[in-house]
Amino acid sequence: MLRQALGVGVATGAYGVSFGAVSVAAGLTVAQTCALSLLMFTGASQFALVGVLAAGGSPLAGAATAVLIGSRNTFYGVRMGALLGWRGARRAAAAHVLIDESTAVGLAHASPQAAARLGFAATGLSVLVLWNAATLAGALAGSALGDPRRLGLDAAVGAAFLALVWPQVRGRRALGVAVGAAALALVLVPATPAGVPVLAAVGVAVLAGLLRARGGAT
């Protein structure tokens, strides 16, 4: 299990390099980039914040988008809370490393509780260390490389978002939401300030969430 935790950490470290490079290309400083990986520590939200800023959106719109994307972790927490059974300071520490990877490994070893705790904590720590080291390396490399457009780094951001959303699009409802949100954003780009087209996607998600599933398909 510890090897699995380390393996997951190494794999996510690779995302960290791209995040670091993309973030400085978006105009954030190396310090701001590293602060995001250390303090926010949830990849999709971090990419979202720098993505909105790169597109000319306001810091407030960037922050709002990042926090809304972070809502997914709340539902990981609901599943992991009962499984881990931690309180007080341990729970507060566990919350920081509550991410896709630690949840997946924790759930994969759900019984006995000690195995779930070890899998969750080892994966969380392994990703925390390697993600932050990789972010720093990516940010330093990104600032040394120069013009981000010439290197295609702006195209890398779109590809990164597509790779992040890809495994989450399961079923017709999610596919409909993905296409609908993208189309709405494109319609809004010429008509609204930067940042608004992305935040408008919340409406699509809420609308789809309210629709009843027909025949159990979701």
Partner: peptide, 25 residues
């Protein structure tokens, strides 16, 4: 359901804006 669809919607909108967005066009 909504909490799981939120990241899907926001990330998809980010793909669109990131790939086809210019300044106001």
């Amino acid at each position: 359901r909504t909490a799981l669809l939120l990241p899907v919607a926001l990330l998809s909108a980010l793909v669109a804006v990131q790939v086809l967005g210019g300044t106001g066009t």
